[in-house]
Structure formats: C-alpha cells, structure tokens
Design a protein around this nucleic acid. Structure first.
Length: 513
RNA sequence: GCCCUUGUAGUUCAAUGGAUAGAACAACGGACUUCUAAGCCGUGAAUGUAGGUUCGAUUCCUACCAAGGGCACCA
C-alpha cells in the first residue's frame, strides 16, 4: 500500500525526493507524505491529483498530506515483508564465549542480538550462516589449567572450571612465581605439548557442553564453531605473506594504522605468538573459504570497537574485494549499576544463574524467562549500554517479553475457543486501531533488517500487544457461541503477527501461560 | 592526553530532519459477577549547556559539561 502511494506521488511529481511514512499518530492517517513541502507545490493541488486505489480519504494539514485507507484496504490479510536482502548470503558471527571462562550475561546479550539479526535477515530473503568464534587458546586457558592443577579441581565439572580460572587469574596478578608458570603453560599450549593434552581437551569439552545447554535454552543452533587454535596458524601465514603491511617494533610485529585513520596494534608478539588481531585474519580467511558470503557481520560489545577499526582498515588491504563487506556491529555493554563486570575477578553474573533466577520468578517457566531476557536486551537501540539491575530485570510486567507473550497467549486461547463457535458474517465493516497498526508490520521488519536494529520490532510488538489488550478488555470475540468473521480474522492476524515478530526476536511463543 | 559511544519524565527505554516528544516502571486514583488480572482505564512528570545550519532540530554541525569504553605484545 505504501508503495502504491509512493508510485502515485512519483507520477505527479517526477524527480522529487519525498518520503511516505507512518505518521506519529493515527489522527494523521495511515500514511503521510512531505511531498508538497519538499517540492514547494500547493498541497491541495497535489492532493487533488492523487487518486489511489484503497485510499478513502486524502487530507491536507498544513503542508503535509495524510492518507486514510479504506476499510477494505485495512482488512487483515497476508502482507509480504519486502525482500531487501533477497538472494544474499549473510554470515553472522555472534556470542563468542571463551571455553574455560564463564558464559556471562554479556554473552547472553551478544547471543540475543546476533540471533535476532540472523532471523531478520532470513525474513528479508537472505541465506544465513550462523557462526560462533571462540578463544580456546591463549593466556586465559593457561590460567584455568594452572588453577585446575594447583587446586586439584575436576576439569569435567563446569563449576570447578570457573573456580580454576578465577584462581589462575588472581595468581597471575598477585603471585610472580605463578605468573611465570602460567606463561610457561601458555607457551606449551601453543606448541601443543602432549602432557597438557588430556586436561585441556577435557576442560574444553566441559565448557562446550555447558555452552550447548545454554544455546538450546536460548534457541540458537550454530552452523559452525570457529576456534582460535585453528585461526592462529592461518593468521600467521597471512601476516607472513603480507609482511610489507607490517613493521617491527620493540621485537613485535605491528600494523601502523595511523595512515588509515586508526591506530597501531601488535599482530605478532616478541615471543612469536599470534595476537587476537592475527587470529582474526585467519578467521576472515576461513569464513571466506567455507562459506562464500556476500556480507559477514560480527557482533560484539563496544569494548572491541578500537580493535575492529584496525581490522576493518587492514582487511581490504589484504582482500580488496572484501571492502565494506566485512562489517562489525557493536552493541552496548551489560553492566552492573555498580560498574563493569570482570570475569577474571569472578564478579560476573553467569548466563546460567540469570536464567535460573528468572525462571523461578516466572513461576518455573523457562520460555517466559528467556522472553524477559531477550526483550530487555533487544529493546534499546544498538550502541546503548544495558544497566543490569538485578531487581528490575526480574520484573515481568509492563514493557516486557512476558507482556507480549501474554497477549499472544490470549489470542491463541481465543482462537481455540472460537474453533467451536459458529462463524457469522460481520454485521458491518469495522476498523479498529489494531487494523491500522497491523498494516505496518512488514515495513518494520524490513527496516529493522536494513538498519540491523531489532529494537524496531520490539517497539512495534509492544504497541500491537497493548492495542490488542485494550481491544480484549473492551470487546468480546465470542458472543453466545457465535463469532463474526471480521473479528475472527482480526484476532487471527494479531496472533500471526505477534508470533512472527516474537520469532524474529528469538523469543519463545507459548500456547498458554 | 588522544579516539569511540551515550546524555530525553524520579527510573528504564521510544521517536526515519516534520505535526501536540510516545510508552513502561514507580506514585496517586479507578473499573471488573463476563473469552487467561503476567491484563484494562485515568492523573501528574522530560530533550545536559551554549551557539550554528534549516521553512522546521531530540535528530545534523561546533564548543563545553557529564557518564561509560578503548589506547601495542590480553581477548
């Protein structure tokens, strides 16, 4: 419908750069345009020329032109989401927890955002590859292994693994002898020392299994897990093959990013080990080889913006065709009211404990808890931090995942009951605010996908759920065992839209609550 | 010191350069013998400061103030 209005205006005003948008309030119609304003033409004259099928009333207010759709055009019906990424392959890398370290709420956040992006891309026609890049080698692993050995903990137990890491990290800072030992373990790991093999493998598998349990609860299934142990060697070869881009500095090999508007970073340490930067280059190579993509997106928290700035400067120098196709999307950080979390100090909220606490608050419903977490994470726009307040995050009322889930549950309960009712013709064609909200859903999904901003969907679903709850309080679907076809179609459309939208956000869609 | 992000009701978040800045929580006040009250209806309450661009700025630009993050051998 929006396309139809745009086409009519384009015909009347060729070459003018106008917009047709959803007005801020329904009083201003279903669509409005600034075409008269930007083209400096008489809005009444322009409005008079616009005869659009499905538009019942064209109204001029000031220099805006507002369009009110006819009851027929507002009728609930299947409306297709514009396939803005049709035919594209998009690889999305998200979550990125590190084996041997806790899965904390920051990872939960990354997972919720990344998963939602993949589903948005799918809805607008893309083929999506879900990957998850994890650090299974490096100092954090050495710290955990040191802790396991020192405290004689069980590498097969996820809690012991967490304790071992905290102990190792603390010892690394406070105890010089331990620091030397841990550095030694790190070197042996890079050399693949067989003496460490079985402990390392057991710990890694324990972590990965634990992560899998969380992904299952969150509704994510990855196509490929990448590990730093595999990207390191490849990264080293790439750096070797492009020596001209790097410089020696204090025994390390660095990339001077200043000439590209960024800063200097170390790629190979003075001890000859690859840094995260070099491993990322290996990852870029692997991703291209295994999944030829049109666009690769990596979501991380904003802490890594500086790092990715350098990578994005370097990648096109090594792979010219990758220019503007290797994209970093950053989100804010999940923080305590009291400050930043630090897993090396052990003051983290693990994803598991948050899920457990919320499930309890949600009367034992894990699907509701997952909905609450994901809604909270996806509600703000990208780049904004989420202040994690343990008390408030447990709220399941008002603007929340459960609020939207509850509205969906109500539609489903109604539809179950209506299945036994006698369906009669609508007495008269009635349009409600619900009809007028429903027509905008496809545009919302397309916009969220294009901007990589799932929060547009959150805002929209909350509005739709609220409108439905108002309708529910004021109207009845089933009266004396009969339903009108118009109302039935309306509730069906609300159910479909809420379910579709929640699915896009990765929020479970319960049958009852 | 340099770079990046963010400043909107008491609080947590919306607002595609556009119309009367929109919700929720908290506070206060209601309705309800009815399809699920995790619900519904109502009241008060906000654009960090100072300039600039524009017919029009929460949105773009500049400076300042404030908060958070990053700044070479961690990831």
């Amino acid at each position: 419908m929006r396309e139809r209005i745009e086409a009519a205006i384009r015909e009347a005003l060729p070459g003018v750069n106008f917009v047709v948008e959803r007005p801020a309030t329904m009083a201003h119609g279903d669509y409005s345009t600034n075409a008269a304003l930007v083209s400096k033409t008489d809005p009444h004259e322009l409005a008079g020329k616009l005869k659009i099928d499905g538009v019942e009333k064209v109204e001029v207010v000031g220099r805006f032109i507002n369009f009110f759709l006819s009851a027929d055009a507002l009728k609930p019906q299947e409306r297709e989401v514009p396939q803005v990424y049709g035919g594209k392959t998009i690889l999305v890398d998200y979550t990125q927890p590190n084996p041997f370290k806790p899965f904390h709420i920051g990872h939960l956040m990354s997972n919720a955002i990344g998963e939602s992006l993949t589903r948005l891309f799918e809805k607008v026609g893309a083929t999506v590859v879900r990957v998850n890049y994890q650090g299974d080698i490096g100092p954090h692993v050495a710290k955990a292994l040191w802790g396991l050995m020192e405290l004689k903990l069980d590498a097969g137990n996820i809690e012991d693994l967490g304790k071992a890491y905290v102990a190792g990290a603390a010892a690394y800072e406070d105890n010089p002898a331990a620091k030397t030992e841990i550095d030694g373990i790190n070197q042996r790991l890079y050399k693949n020392d067989p003496a460490l093999r079985s402990l390392y493998e057991e710990g890694k598998q324990t972590s990965l299994k634990h992560f899998d349990d969380i992904y299952r609860a969150l509704g994510t299934k990855f196509d490929r897990l990448f590990f730093e142990s595999e990207t390191g060697p490849i990264g080293l070869q790439i750096v070797e093959a492009h020596k001209n881009l790097f410089e020696q500095s204090d025994g390390a090999l660095v990339f001077k990013g200043e000439q590209y508007g960024t800063h200097t970073r170390v790629f190979i340490t003075s001890k000859g080990t690859p840094t995260y930067e070099t491993k990322e280059l290996g990852l870029v190579e692997l991703k291209q080889k295994e999944f030829p993509f049109d666009v690769a997106v990596t979501t991380t928290s904003g802490e890594q913006n500086g790092f990715f700035q350098v990578v994005e400067a370097l990648v096109p120098l090594i792979w010219p065709t990758l220019k503007d196709r290797y994209i970093h999307v950053s989100h804010g950080m999940m923080k305590f009211a009291s400050g930043k979390m630090a897993s090396r100090k052990g003051n983290v909220i693990t994803g598991e404990s948050l899920l457990k606490d919320l499930t309890e608050a949600a009367r034992g419903r894990e699907d509701v808890a997952v909905g609450a977490i994901k809604y909270t994470v996806l509600k703000p726009g990208n780049g904004r931090d989420i202040i994690f307040d343990p008390e408030k995050s447990l709220s399941l009322e008002g603007d929340s995942g459960p609020y939207v889930q509850y509205a969906l549950v109500r539609t489903r309960a109604l539809l179950r009951k209506a299945a036994d009712a006698e369906v009669g013709k609508s007495d008269f064609p009635r349009t409600t605010p619900l009809h007028r909200i429903l027509i905008h859903y496809p545009d919302v999904v397309a916009r969220a996908a294009k901007e990589m901003e799932p929060h547009h969907v959150v805002t929209y679903l909350t509005e739709l759920a609220a409108a439905f709850n108002s309708w529910y309080a004021a109207e009845r679907l089933i009266i004396d065992g009969k339903v009108s076809s118009g109302n039935l179609e309306l509730v069906q459309a609300v159910e479909k839209t809420l379910a579709h939208g929640l699915h896009v956000l990765g929020i479970p869609t319960p049958e009852e609550m």
